[in-house]
Amino acid sequence: MSLRVEKPGLHTTVQDLGRAGWRKDALAEGGAMDRYALRVANLLVGNDEGAAGLELTLVGPVLVAETDMLLAVCGAYMTPQVNGDELPMWRPFWVAAGARLSFGAAVDGCRAYVAVAGGGILTAPVLGSRSTDTRAGIGGIAGRALRAADVLPCGSRDAAPAWRAATPSWSRRNGWAAPGWFAPPVAYGGGAADGIELRAMPGAEFGRLREAARSALFRERFTVAPASDRMGVRLTGPPVEFEDVAEMLSHGVVPGTVQVPHGGAPIVLAADCQTTGGYPKAAQVITADLALLAQAKPGDIIRFREVSLSEAQRIYIALERSMTELAAGIQLRLTQNR
């Protein structure tokens, strides 16, 4: 099976859950910015949750299915269409060979994910992952974003039991079919005046912030700047200034670390962030909310809400347990032939 890229969109890349384990060589973990959306999309087509899919950014691509296939789209709402009809998100859908999937600009959220049944996108893995790392030039197709005329090898129908079990009962029209059930969609709240709330712990250097900055960080609103990318989400807003600007030796940083370079404009590090940095750390966004960070687009408002380490880990564990339940629920739907 394969997908052909008719138009590439703004920045469409192959992503799975990343290549953790190589940070000692300063290689980013990478992987999907919104791991929740990719995991749900994979579950909906019967894949392992970590299979490689496509990450669409701000403006989506036009894709053509070169064979019959089973897909799912989760994440940002980009007015998706299949053969000119509205494409149903957060649920599996089947398409006949020649089907055209087209995406427009992101209306709610910033990144959408396309999963393909039978094992996902099967470009060659590099250091244990198919994720595209454009900085290192590895993964996906030649380590770069997709271009027109790229052809993506996809999993096989034989490797997609859910397909055989579920799809025959869906009514087909206009070259596609989808069931009536779906996974709970997520609304991202971009553009809303009160903005997107990200829960965060105070960072290691929080105590060195000026008093005004300490109170502003968890109270004021910040705006996502246009220069944001997969390495980091740049914010503008009240300056976040430190009492002293003592130089720090480079130290480890991870996605979610809120770094503050001289000048006081915070950067929330994201999936492709450097492994080390020398700037003080004002806060750390909790893992569960990195999916929301991924969906914040330039111009969106962000607020931080303080949580403790224990709360953050409790939220992490609760989310992972709810994923296990969701996976079981989807599996049941797929095999019950509805």
Partner: peptide, 11 residues
């Protein structure tokens, strides 16, 4: 999952 050795820290 991963280790980042730096000059005076290990993450």
């Amino acid at each position: 999952i991963d280790i980042i050795p730096a000059m005076d820290t290990l993450t």
